[in-house]
């Protein structure tokens, strides 16, 4: 983790937060009560990350912070000084879809698509996490923080297990 300077802001005061988003250094000008999710969307216009509940109850806003899947609706932007954030816009590399994206397309692992960025960010992190077993039941449990009201879970599971073959074969690289 990058060392960074102290942050101090009065209520309502706008401060600069420097962070890395999808590999690019970015700066945010935000007050302390701005949430990472809203900063990504409203300020950086990275609108792929979605708001479904704003309370950590649905998973639509899942992004990676320093490689870990988190709910961006429950993290203040000012808490992200020096952090590395990856959103769905950073999942594809060099114009190539991430194996999880390819598998979601192939398996029709979505319907309306609104929870999909969050699903894929969780899936991409899961496939890189050796602590989570590869069997279907473990994947289902690990993915339960991403609700899909369209109910595409069957195809989501199939897509993740399919992408696993690509990721473990080394053709893909986790975000």
């Amino acid at each position: 983790m990058m060392e960074s300077s102290e942050t101090s802001a009065q209520a309502g005061e706008t401060v600069t937060v420097s962070l890395t988003v999808n590999g690019e250094p970015r700066q945010l000008q935000v007050t302390p009560n701005v949430v990472l999710l809203d900063a990504l969307r409203d300020d950086l216009r990275l609108t792929g990350t979605k708001k479904g509940c704003d309370h950590g109850q649905c998973g639509a806003c899942t992004v990676h912070v320093d490689g870990k899947a988190v709910n961006s609706c429950l993290r203040l932007a000012v808490m992200c000084e020096g952090r590395h954030v990856t959103t769905v816009e950073g999942l594809a590399r060099d114009g190539q879809l991430h194996p999880v994206q390819r598998a979601f397309l192939e398996h029709d692992a979505y319907q309306c698509g609104y929870c999909t960025p969050g699903q894929m960010m969780s899936a991409a992190a899961l496939l890189e996490d050796e602590r989570i077993a590869a069997d279907d039941a473990s994947v289902r449990e690990a993915m339960s923080g991403n609700l899909c009201r369209c109910g595409a879970y069957k195809n989501i599971l199939e897509a993740i297990q399919d992408a696993r073959r690509d990721v473990t074969a080394g053709t893909g690289e986790g975000a």
Binding site: T7, S8, A9, Q10, A11, E13, P32, N33, V35, E81
Partner: peptide, 11 residues
């Protein structure tokens, strides 16, 4: 979410 101040602590 209303307004509040924010400060990091190092130790």
């Amino acid at each position: 979410m209303r307004s509040f101040a924010y400060r990091t602590a190092e130790d």
